[in-house]
Design a protein around this nucleic acid. Sequence first.
DNA 1: TAAGATTGAAAGATCAATCTTA
DNA 2: TAAGATTGATCTTTCAATCTTA
Lengths: 161, 161
Amino acid sequence: MVDDRWLTVEQQRSWRAWLAVSALLPDRLEHELKSAHDLSLAEYEILVRLSEEPERRLRMSELASRTLASKSRLSHQVSRMEASGLVSRAGCLEDGRGSYAQLTDHGWRVLVTAAPCHVAGVRRWLVDALPAEDFARLGSIMAVVVEHLATAESPTVGHSG
Amino acid sequence: MVDDRWLTVEQQRSWRAWLAVSALLPDRLEHELKSAHDLSLAEYEILVRLSEEPERRLRMSELASRTLASKSRLSHQVSRMEASGLVSRAGCLEDGRGSYAQLTDHGWRVLVTAAPCHVAGVRRWLVDALPAEDFARLGSIMAVVVEHLATAESPTVGHSG
DNA sequence: TAAGATTGAAAGATCAATCTTA
DNA sequence: TAAGATTGATCTTTCAATCTTA
C-alpha cells in the first residue's frame, strides 16, 4: 500500500484472517442449516430470541435490537416468516403503536428440531476447533470490542475527494 | 434451550459476542467508507486485491477466491464497478475462456484516497481497541479457524424433520 | 414532534441455467 | 465433458418515505 498509516504485515495478516472467518463461518453454518432444515441463519436467530422469552414473544423493536437488525430488515424478515408460519404478529395493548412478534407452535417445533444441527456446526467449526482456553479468550476479546463499538463515538469522517 | 448438547452459559456468551462483532464491525466500516468515499466494503476489497498485483489486474476466478466471493457475485459486482469506472474487463490471451479484472487509474486514485479512512476505522474499532497482545492473539486464533474451515470435511447433515 | 413500525423501490446476493473455449 | 465466466430470475437488504399513536 501507499500510506504511512497502514497496518504492519503482522496486523494485516490478523485482520485478513478475521475477514476470512467472518465470511466463511456464517456461510458454512447457513448452508448446513438451510440444507438440513430449510432455515436461514437470520430466521434461526429470530426463533432463538423469541424462544427465550416467557411468552415466546417480543416487541419488534426489541427483537431488532437483539438480533442487531434494522427495523426495516426485521419487519420484512418477520413478514416472510409469518408467511411460512414460523411466527405471527400481534398488536400491543400497552402501546398502540407497538407490535409483537410471537413464536408459533410450528416455529417452536422447527427450532427444537434445527437447534442440534446449528449447535453442532458452531461446535465443529469454532468451539471445538480451538483449545478451550483459546475459545474463552476469543470470547473475552470479542466482549471488549462489542463494548467499544457500542460505547465509543463514531468520529466525523472527513471527505478528501 | 431444550437440548442436552447445547453450549455452556460461558460458551454461549462468547458465541454471541462473536456474532455481535461480526455484525457491528463491518457495518461500521461500511458506513464510514460509504459516507466519506461512496465505496462499499466489497468494492474496497476488490480494489485492494487488484492494487496488490504487479499489473493491477487479476483473473476473475482468482479475484473471487481471494475476496471469498462466489463467481456469480463477483461477476455482478465487477459489472457495477465497471459501470462506475473503477475497473475494466479484459480478455485473457493464455486462456480464451478467462477474463481479467483490471484496476483503472480512476480506481487506483479512489483506493489511495479512501484507504486512510478504512485503515483508521480498522484501527479505531478493532486494532487499537485491544491491547496489542490481544489483537495478535485474535489473529492467531482466527488463523487456526480459517485453516480448519478450509481443510476439514463438512459432515453429511442428517435431516430429522 | 417524536417513537414504533411498516412499506415500496432500488441495490445487492444467490441460484440455477447458459455460453464459450479447453 | 469440464472449467472459466456471465446472465436472468428470485430473494434479501437498504434507503427514504409514510402511517399511526404518544
